[in-house]
């Protein structure tokens, strides 16, 4: 191996180590969304600023008005819940118990006004239980308040 190649390899190792250290430092800061608990813990700083909120759609809280396109539901992380309001049709897979990430602002009236609603799918893949047909599953996706 030539001297030059050694130099290249050493340089690569150095840059890589440095890069890994940088990545390591990011560890806790790179957060795509806040949980309801974290948002509420921010207190005053959490109001009226654009944030992403993520959690599960609390079963039994979904209210969907097809005519006015008003969608309201609670997002929970098991310890805290935040009430979310959106105008517009939810994504196909939106349903009670599903993971969601919502972009918007938390208002002082205690309602998180969503500008964008995303579904966060879990890593679970299972065929429907016996008796359930996929067509029926689609129907139940946005049924409303009954989970």
């Amino acid at each position: 191996m030539s001297k030059r190649n050694w130099a290249i390899l050493v340089a690569v190792v150095l840059v890589a180590t440095f890069g890994w250290l940088l990545y390591g430092g990011l560890d806790k800061n790179v957060v795509f969304f806040l949980t309801p608990k974290e948002l509420l813990a921010k207190g005053d700083a959490g109001y009226d600023v654009p944030v992403r909120l993520g959690g599960l759609v609390k079963p039994g809280t979904v209210q969907w008005d097809e005519k006015t396109l008003h969608l309201q539901f609670e997002v929970t992380d098991d310890t805290s819940t935040v009430l979310v309001h959106e105008t517009g049709a939810p994504p196909q897979m939106f349903q009670p118990g599903m993971g969601v990430v919502i972009e918007g602002k938390y208002g002082r009236d205690g309602v998180f006004e969503a500008t964008n609603l995303m579904v966060k799918h879990s890593n679970e893949y299972h065929p429907p239980k016996p008796g359930e047909k996929p067509e029926e599953m689609y129907k139940t996706l946005i049924k409303g308040s009954t989970p």
Partner: peptide, 26 residues
């Protein structure tokens, strides 16, 4: 880093599936 990103950081992309979280046929 790409592989571990979903484990290290909170992402919209889901974590890798496991033998338990995914039915065998998939």
């Amino acid at each position: 880093i790409v592989w571990m990103s979903v484990t290290w950081w909170r992402t919209l992309h889901q974590m890798p599936s496991s033998m338990r979280s995914m039915a065998k046929i998939y």
